[in-house]
């Protein structure tokens, strides 16, 4: 059978008919992902129509002379494709692209870190990849708005246009601790991440001592970072007592903002306090 095929396209309901010539199919250069289309054919007899690419592989049996219809949602993965119409010994081919739909449907929002100290310039970063309903990256530039808000600080907001489907930004952590919402929005879809803005190192570490029977009771003042944020409970404070060539140490966690321990009371003992790499005051115990 020596068939000549007429192929055209009906994209989004608009017919665009082209003739196939010399074994080469004439197709529209692009289709929109997921849209319905129809390809008229000419001639008579049976044939097989293929659309093949890295994204999809479709096959349709064709009655030549009848159009080949592809309902919405049949060809949806963006990419470069080959169309093949095979009938007996005759094969005609063409190439075309499927492009992402224009409407954003999904954001993949990579926000880092999930936790950081307060007052860090550009400490928070977010990258938003914008996809259509079929998980195709939308390459057409789109405005993405980023917003970082924390109950006790002013809102940081900026709009960035996507390039190659991605928009990114950097923002400062607030000066006050708390849970911040980091939102990326494009059109009417959005994605939210929660960023914990936590206190920094203790700024001033001060302990006091008072006698308690045979022991000395040591207690820190409420610990705060240099921005006045209370250092979180559980932070380890190390108390060290040195006396007569001997030493006692306790790693005590902050509870309700303070660390408190009892150590043996030796007159003349030196008692120091530290938390991480921050050193506090030193007391020479003389019984009072």
């Amino acid at each position: 059978m020596n068939a000549r095929f007429l192929l055209g396209a009906l994209v989004l309901g608009v017919a665009s008919v082209s003739l196939a010539q010399s074994g080469s199919l004439s197709l529209p250069p692009t289709f929109v992902a997921g849209s319905a289309f129809s390809l008229p054919t000419t001639g008579s007899g049976k044939a097989v129509f293929y659309i093949v690419g890295p994204g999809q592989a479709l096959r349709r049996d064709v009655d030549l002379g009848e159009p080949v219809s592809f309902p919405a949602g049949t060809l949806y993965n963006a990419g470069h494709y080959v169309a093949i119409l095979s009938s007996g010994a005759s094969t005609e081919t063409g190439q075309f692209d499927v492009v992402p739909a224009a409407q954003p449907e999904k954001i993949s929002f990579l926000a880092k870190p999930s936790r950081l100290p307060v007052g860090l310039h550009n400490g928070i970063s977010g990258a938003a990849y914008i996809f259509d309903a079929y998980h195709n990256l939308i390459l057409k530039p789109l405005p993405v708005s980023f917003e970082l808000s924390n109950q006790s600080s002013t809102v940081q907001a900026r709009t960035v246009t996507t390039r190659n489907g991605v928009a990114w930004t950097e923002m400062d952590s607030a000066t006050k601790q708390g849970s911040a919402k980091f939102v990326a929005r494009v059109g009417d879809i959005s994605s939210t991440r929660v960023i914990a803005e936590v206190p920094g190192d203790p700024c001033r570490l001060v302990m006091t001592a008072r006698p308690d029977g045979k022991n000395v009771e040591l207690q820190t003042a409420p610990l705060r970072d240099c921005g006045g944020n209370p250092v979180p409970d559980g932070t380890i404070v190390t108390f060290t007592e040195s006396y007569n060539g001997m030493q006692s140490t306790v790693d005590a966690p902050l509870k309700q903002g303070i660390a408190k321990v009892e150590m043996p009371a030796y007159n003349g003992a030196r008692i120091s306090v530290a938390s991480g790499v921050v050193a506090g005051n030193e007391i020479r115990w003389n019984g009072r």
Partner: peptide
């Protein structure tokens, strides 16, 4: 063309030339 600030994604373009054989 893009390396996200947190290092979790990297974007690259590839102007690729290739041959494709479809075999039934």
């Amino acid at each position: 063309v893009f390396y996200s600030p947190e290092g979790l994604s990297l974007q690259m373009t590839d102007d690729a030339e290739y041959d494709m054989q479809v075999i039934d």
